[in-house]
Every structure is written in structure tokens, then in C-alpha cells.
């Protein structure tokens, strides 16, 4: 598979590059889950790359691979130009300072026994960043202030805080080691709607102030559009389409993306009346035994016999916009027509 948009980017402005990544988990009796099965992507300095897909599409596993938190079956993971795929445990430690992670559910990702100050100070202690306790405490205060919490909250325990406050703590912890890249694994999925907006705005502000790079993993199409400079859509362990939010949301070139977007209601009543919903049948197939050829063919309204034979590469739709479909835009056009007939 081709590296997404690698033609335009040079090595220096790529913070992380994943090439033909495969992560397979054995699940007993000889079965193997193909969680990630040939993913290539670049994360460029200062950008937000949105990774969107259903649960089970392998988006979180891809994020975990960037910190070497899962065993990489094949392919390479490069961070800051260095191939970290086979690094030893000792070498991986500084990697986990360069790349930090924010988890989905902050009430699960913070140790209930530790004060939030101690949780935030963990990366400092692990990497020996601020020697003395007083220095660390001061830095924790700065970090709390940075994420919009009062420094005197450092002595609280997670259960004494609201969900939004806890996620701010999770972000402060991720920032403690001054990372280049933040892997945001569904950072807003477990929060209330109003708090989601606050956390997204906080993330954007931090990105501006600190020059951070984000890999924003989410199943929320609207949130990904709002946050991202570029978007990659995943399905069953593969990237099926990638491009700018504009390209993908206005002009989806993969049947899966088109179907996903057609399910999102729009706020504008006039456009909502125009909306034609493409219905997908069945569930996402088991990653233990993914379909031959194109992985999406079992649910694709425009699938043809060929699709079971050939595994489509990403082709270029336009500059920076790629999709993996044998029949290119034709398939989407055909689906649209079908949907129109069905509802109109």
C-alpha cells in the first residue's frame, strides 16, 4: 500500500510514519485477529490527523503501535525519522516521552489510589525530568493551569472530579514529558456533549500554543471533521480513504465513506431533505477471517464479482485525496443513484 500523501512530505516534517503495519493477535485454537492489516500513514509536524472508523476497525491499535504498546507483527513504525519497530525495552522508554497518549475513559485511565498530582508527575519521575519534589510539584501546577484546572487541585483524587476535569488531568499527564506527538484515543467519546466541545477546544488551543502534533482517533465523524487537517478512514484493519476533511466530507470516493457520511443528519433543513441515506447491510465482518479481495465487498451496495478477487490499492482521486476502490468514483456514483431510487 502507498504511504498516504508521502509524495508531498519530506522526512523532516513527518513526526511519525507507519508503513504497511500489521498487528495480529492470536486468539487461541490457531485463530488470529487481523486487528491492523496493512496500514500506512504519515503524521506531519503540527497537524491533526484524524483516524475514523467503527469499533474493531483497528484505529486504536494503530495508535497503540506508535508507542509500541502492542506487538507489531510486520511493517515498520518510525518516529522522528527513526525506525522504532524493533527497539528494545530500554530504547522504548524515551520513545514514550516523544509520543504520549490520552485515553478514552479518564475515570479508568487514572489510578484511583493516586492523587491527580501524582498521576501527572508520573512521566516527570519516570524520565527524571524534574529532580526535586518541589520542582515536580511546581511543574504539575503549571500543567494543571495549562489545561484549565486550578493548581491546588493536585491533591485531589480522581473520584472527586467531574469527567471533563478528569480528562483535563489525562491531557496534563500526556503533556508532562513535553511530547512531540499526542495519540488521542477517543478522547471525548465518554464525555457529555457540552464537555466534548470544551475538551476539543482545549486540545486545539494547546496545539496552537505548544506546536503539538495530534493523531486524533474517533468514531465521531463530526468531531473528526472539526479537529482534523487530514482524515484517514479505516475499515477492518485497513485505511480505505484519506484526504482533507473537505475532500472526504464533500466528495467521498470510497463506498464505505459515502455510506458513513450519508448516515449523518445535517443541521440545515433544506440539505437534510436532500439527504439520501445509503443503507449498509450486515455487521462488520470478523477480523479473524476478513473477506478476500476488497474487505468492504461483503457490505458494499456496489460490489461486483471482481471485488472478491483483487485487493484494491489506494488510488489518487485528486491531489492529497486517495481511496481504495477498484471501481473508483464509479462505485460511489452508482450507490448514490441506487439510494435515490430507493427513497425518492
Amino acid at each position: 500500500m502507498t504511504t498516504t500523501g508521502s509524495t508531498e512530505s519530506t522526512a523532516t516534517d513527518v513526526v511519525a510514519r507507519v508503513t504497511d503495519l500489521r498487528v495480529h493477535f492470536p486468539v487461541g485454537r490457531g485463530s488470529v485477529v487481523h486487528a491492523v492489516d496493512g496500514v500506512s500513514l504519515d503524521v506531519r509536524r503540527g497537524e491533526t490527523l484524524g483516524l475514523v472508523g467503527e469499533s474493531g476497525s483497528g484505529k486504536s491499535t494503530t495508535g497503540l503501535a506508535l508507542l509500541r504498546l502492542v506487538h507489531v507483527t510486520s511493517g515498520t513504525v518510525e518516529v522522528a525519522g527513526q525506525d522504532v519497530t524493533t527497539w528494545s525495552r530500554r530504547q522504548v522508554k524515551p520513545l514514550r516521552r516523544r509520543v504520549a497518549m490520552v485515553f478514552q475513559d479518564p475515570s479508568a485511565s487514572l489510578d484511583p489510589r493516586l492523587t491527580i498530582g501524582a498521576s501527572i508527575a508520573e512521566p516527570l519521575a519516570v524520565h527524571g525530568l524534574r529532580g526535586s519534589k518541589a520542582e515536580r510539584r511546581e511543574r504539575v501546577g503549571e500543567l494543571l493551569d495549562l489545561v484549565g484546572l486550578r493548581p491546588d487541585m493536585a491533591d485531589r483524587h480522581p473520584h472527586e472530579m467531574s469527567g471533563g476535569q478528569r480528562q483535563r488531568v489525562g491531557i496534563a499527564r500526556a503533556l508532562a514529558g513535553e511530547p512531540d506527538l499526542l495519540v488521542l484515543d477517543e478522547p471525548i467519546a465518554s464525555l457529555d456533549l457540552s464537555v466534548q466541545a470544551q475538551i476539543m477546544n482545549l486540545l486545539r488551543r494547546l496545539q496552537e500554543e505548544l506546536g503539538l502534533t495530534y493523531l486524533f482517533i474517533s468514531h465521531d465523524l463530526a468531531a473528526v471533521e472539526h479537529m482534523s487537517d487530514r482524515v484517514a478512514v479505516m475499515y477492518l484493519g485497513r485505511i480505505v480513504e484519506t484526504g482533507t476533511p473537505e475532500q472526504i466530507y464533500r466528495n467521498p470516493a470510497h463506498p464505505y465513506t459515502a455510506a458513513l457520511l450519508s448516515a449523518v443528519p445535517t443541521a440545515d433543513p433544506a440539505r437534510e431533505r436532500e439527504r439520501r441515506r445509503i443503507t449498509l447491510h450486515g455487521d462488520i465482518p470478523s477480523p479473524v477471517d476478513p473477506p478476500s479481495g476488497c474487505r468492504f465487498r461483503t457490505r458494499c451496495p456496489a460490489a461486483r464479482p471482481d471485488c472478491a478477487e483483487k485487493d484494491p490499492d489506494l488510488y489518487q482521486v485528486e491531489e492529497g485525496h486517495r481511496a481504495a476502490c477498484l471501481y473508483k468514483v464509479e462505485a460511489v456514483r452508482e450507490m448514490r443513484a441506487g439510494a435515490d431510487r430507493a427513497t425518492g
Partner: peptide, 12 residues
């Protein structure tokens, strides 16, 4: 998850 989170910070 908090154990994974600790691993992700590089803790031994």
C-alpha cells in the same frame, strides 16, 4: 486502563 496508561508514560 491505568496500568496501560502507566506503561505508555515509559514507566518500568
Amino acid at each position: 486502563v491505568f496500568v496501560t496508561a502507566a506503561v505508555s508514560t515509559g514507566a518500568s
